[in-house]
Design a protein around this nucleic acid. Structure first.
Lengths: 207, 207
DNA sequence: AAGTAATTGTTGACTATCAAACAAACGCTC
DNA sequence: GAGCGTTTGTTTGATAGTCAACAATTACTT
């Protein structure tokens, strides 16, 4: 698919161009002419590859998601000691990937293109959980779909928080945080505070 | 000349590729295949534009020299108050230009391509002095060629020192330094110590 | 000296990108 | 609603860049 150097080069240039423009203005205000002008390509070239600018944006997201999948699987690629992928080791790679593609994530998360991206991102993470984690789901009692969704959205939430804060922390810190959050079984604590305490408070109902 | 977007794009890519490679190894150890591989172009494309890699290097230097001339002339371009170019105001632009093209200057000055570059650089500066400085030469007693050479090599010397030190100082500092050096009339001081003193010493020749 | 691997320079068929032009549709402002 | 600049798609022939193959040269190894 598109092995020609020219095609790859052109598409990358148009992608970068669109992303750069999205830093300044809303997606709907960006014209095709804008895109090709900043990329310094001919307009006809755009139409050779895409029909609408939406196609270009979709392709950008698609490419980044492909990169995400590769990052996720990378630690197990050239290891003869066929290590079993664990949630923790894979998740570090996700944060690394976000860090490397910070420009994309910052722009898209802050843009009006967020919903479309979020859908694809969640879908990708879910797929990875099912296909790559042999020990998934960890507990026979839990609904796998629910757990996958839970984890995927949890990670998305961390990333959005991280990105909106300007990616101040290194990716290793984010991995630590997630690890700590998982170990602390935060839901239990939350539930304890929110629901268990009240019941403990209304002690001695009038018999 | 070469207004086609593809040509400009390709040449820039090949230029950058060669410069990047020159950071790692000697110019003579770089193969055409190296150049096109890192630039991700086809080898045939190289031969469409150049015969030898020397052509490419020459073109790089030529382009930077063109940029130098433009920088030099830029302060007087869109001024209605046709200001007379002065040595001091123009020289600041030279340092700015070096700062902007620091990658090029660092690589070339440290490489074995320095002699060829130096020749073109001096030649450019001399030409600028003659064509752009109406008050040049400043003193009717001095040989214009000698003065031009003097100034050109002096600036080259400062730049080489500056670049080899890793461009630690801002260009404004370099301009200040040059200004200070010119104001201090350093040659006079040097001559005073070395040659004037002796003559002063042999006062009162025996009549 | 022979063998081989890497690099060179060149070719030809194929395709992507180019510039330039055009008509149509879309805001605008008056 | 008429005029006007901008953006849009689309088309044209010309050219740049691609890929794969090839023989010639160079450089290294045995």
């Amino acid at each position: 698919m598109d092995k020609d150097k020219r095609v790859r080069r052109t598409k990358k240039a148009l992608q970068n161009s669109l992303l750069t423009l999205m830093e300044e203005k809303d997606f709907q205000d960006i014209t095709i002419t804008d895109i090709v002008t900043t990329a310094d390509y001919n307009r006809g070239t755009f139409y050779k590859h895409y029909k609408y600018k939406e196609d270009l944006l979709d392709e950008i997201i698609e490419d980044v998601m492909t990169g995400l999948i590769e990052s996720y699987r990378e630690p197990y690629n050239d290891k003869e000691t066929l290590e079993v992928p664990s949630l923790s080791s894979s998740v570090i790679k996700i944060f690394d990937h976000v860090e490397r593609n910070s420009k994309f994530y910052q722009i898209v998360i802050r843009s009006n293109a967020l919903p479309g991206f979020q859908e694809k991102f969640i879908q990708t993470l879910k797929k990875l959980a099912f296909e790559d984690l042999p020990a998934f789901p960890s507990n026979p009692d839990v609904n796998p779909d629910l757990q996958a969704s839970f984890h995927s959205y949890a990670i998305l939430g961390m990333i959005i928080e991280w990105v909106n804060g300007g990616l101040k922390h290194p990716s290793s810190y984010m991995a630590e945080q997630l690890s700590a959050l998982l170990k602390a079984e935060p839901m239990k604590t939350a539930f304890k505070t929110k629901y268990v305490l009240p019941t403990w408070h209304k002690k001695e109902p009038s018999i």
